[in-house]
């Protein structure tokens, strides 16, 4: 009954590796600030990079070491920054208002004209490679959903009319969709902004815009005359309303013959 030998061999192997591992655990112990672990757990963990750091762990290290402000995580917002303050023993910081993406284009499929029928990869960047996209308007939304794909919180859906729709609750204001849109059509606006916005991005001359889209802004300047607070300015045939000056009186909305100016109602076209 030879039991001793296997017992010794296996026991010996267990001993050798047990010893090696425990020796390595001491010798190569890495002093880690366990607060980084706790803060990292508090952060949403979507590793979206909105704070500009490689994932939540990267941001957590910087927050604990104090290099970046406690509310650096826009996605987490006030809730997260307050909890981190408790952990790090700092006084809570007034978080600035949350921002919401807004689509500055109303070029739905029925009002815009296509140059050709595009059957390539369903991605705006890819579509742009074919002579500047399949839409006659060089600045309009192509509706292929790069922004939808980019959103780590699935807060963006592509409407049937070919324009992205923002889901208010899910959106954390991280701004990734704004950067993802190759034509810069999505811009972050304050949640509680109630003024007017020119929902167009076209810098073409009036004639080209009229041929490309039924609702595009032609730069006719009617809104400038109508606006009591001089909040409107027109550059490259495109009207722009300065959110600071505009008090949402809506004069420009009636004056606009193209009906492209809207008050800050969510784009529920």
């Amino acid at each position: 009954m030879n039991i001793v030998l296997p017992l010794v061999v296996l026991g010996g192997l267990g001993l050798v590796f047990g010893g090696l591992l425990s020796f390595a655990a001491q010798r190569f112990a890495v002093e880690e600030d366990e607060r980084v672990e706790i803060v990292a757990d508090l952060l949403p963990g979507a590793n979206c990079g909105a704070c500009g750091y490689p994932g939540c762990i990267g941001a957590a290290e910087k927050i604990v070491s104090g290099e970046i402000p406690v509310d650096a995580c826009t996605v987490g917002g006030k809730v997260v920054s307050d909890r981190i303050c408790e952990i790090l023993g700092l006084e809570p910081v007034a978080a600035d208002a949350k921002k919401i993406p807004t689509v500055f284009c109303l070029g739905t499929k029925d009002v815009t004209v296509d140059k050709f029928e595009y059957q390539g990869v369903p991605d705006c960047n890819a579509a742009l490679m074919y002579s500047g996209g399949f839409k006659a308007c060089e600045y309009g939304c192509l509706g292929l959903g790069t922004c939808v794909e980019a959103c780590p919180f699935e807060a963006l859906q592509m409407g049937e009319n070919g324009l992205p729709v923002v889901d208010e609750e899910r959106c954390t204001g991280c701004g990734i969709c704004a950067n993802a849109c190759p034509r810069g059509i999505i811009r972050m606006m304050d949640v509680d902004y109630s003024g007017c916005m020119v929902l167009c991005n076209s810098k073409d001359r009036g004639g080209t815009t009229r041929r490309a889209c039924k609702v595009g802004c032609t730069g006719c300047k009617a809104c400038i005359k109508a606006c009591p607070n001089e909040a409107v300015v027109v550059e490259d045939y495109l009207a722009y309303i300065d959110p600071a000056k505009c008090d949402g009186c809506g004069e420009c909305v009636e004056a606009c013959r193209r009906d492209i100016i809207k008050t800050a109602v969510k784009v529920a076209v």
Partner: peptide, 10 residues
């Protein structure tokens, strides 16, 4: 915890 994986595997 540190030797969890080797122990389970054995």
């Amino acid at each position: 915890a540190k030797v969890r994986i080797p122990a389970y595997i054995m």
